[in-house]
Amino acid sequence: MTNELIAISVLWGFIFIYAVMATMDFGAGFWSMVYINREKTKATNIANRYLSPTWEVTNVFIVAIVVALVSFFPGATFLLGTVLLIPGSIILLLLAIRSAFLVFAHIAKEYEKVLTYVSGISGIIIPAFLISVLPITHGGFIETIDGVAKLRMDKLFTSPHEYAFIGFAIASTLFLSSLLLADYSNAANELDAYQVYRRDALFLGPISLLMALFIMLTMRSEAAWLYERMIDYLPWLIGSVMMFAIAGIALFLPSTKYTTVKGKPRLAVVAIVIQYFLASYAYGKAHLPYMIYPNVTIQSGFTHPNTFRALFVSYIVGFVILFPGFIYFWRLFMKDKRYLQSNDPS
């Protein structure tokens, strides 16, 4: 593997982890808003119990992505920084509101509802803007006049390709999070909440699959280069759809814990994560070597080799140090029955 490939794989890894964690995070915020008035089912309660300890950790990943991008591909930073000024700033503003109000909602109980609405709604808009970075990298939306690159917002926001991505981002945010929360409620023995989230997941799954197909459809006409390359990875895409089917089936299998409800949510979650992994691998591989088509490739933007080497060492040392911390965190919040079943999460 070349240095460039290692670097882009690390970056891709961060993006994948963030994509999964953030969809669950933003989605959980949204569900905690939707079910806030249904005190009996504890659906909001479950969402908060997941959200409270994790949002800060999730947020670090977005910073990690930006840092990895800048440090591995400083050449791409210049162009990306320039064209993403406006959309990037909108994301930052929304993120600030959403994170702060999420914390405020837990502390100021009397205003919990209003604060939860603000953070829930701003949270669900963020993925729509975040994912817009992808169609921008597909080419056609950046215009260079007198050596100055500009993002053609008008073109971007009249493009069906962009809307396919936005639709996909929102649908899969809601889908992934409801599926995860179904599993989380199941582990916490909250049957009512489980039923609610299982139903939501069953409804939203097919919608997000449709949106993914819609992306392929618009890609064919708007980013033909990428479409053709993705077709080279057809087996991965088919594998991805099969995983989706397995997840669907898993939700109808008899439950191992109860007789009154159906489904093996843990299996479904694992299958869906594999599904997203396969699909984004195919997408990422087809995207290479371009970071921004056709201006920037992973070679043209790459960092200085000495810096790369030092970074690489720091990644290994950092991973070794942090790994036990992550394990401990996981055990305390994802497995410990005392936490899962506690009544007041916030």
């Binding site: 800048v70 920084g81 320039t82």
Partner: peptide
């Protein structure tokens, strides 16, 4: 990165370690 892309280009090539750590 958004406001000072020229600065961050240098930082990315030379001074990335503190950000990473």
């Amino acid at each position: 990165s958004l406001l000072w892309p020229g600065f961050m280009e240098v930082i990315g090539k030379v001074m990335a370690l503190p950000f990473q750590i």
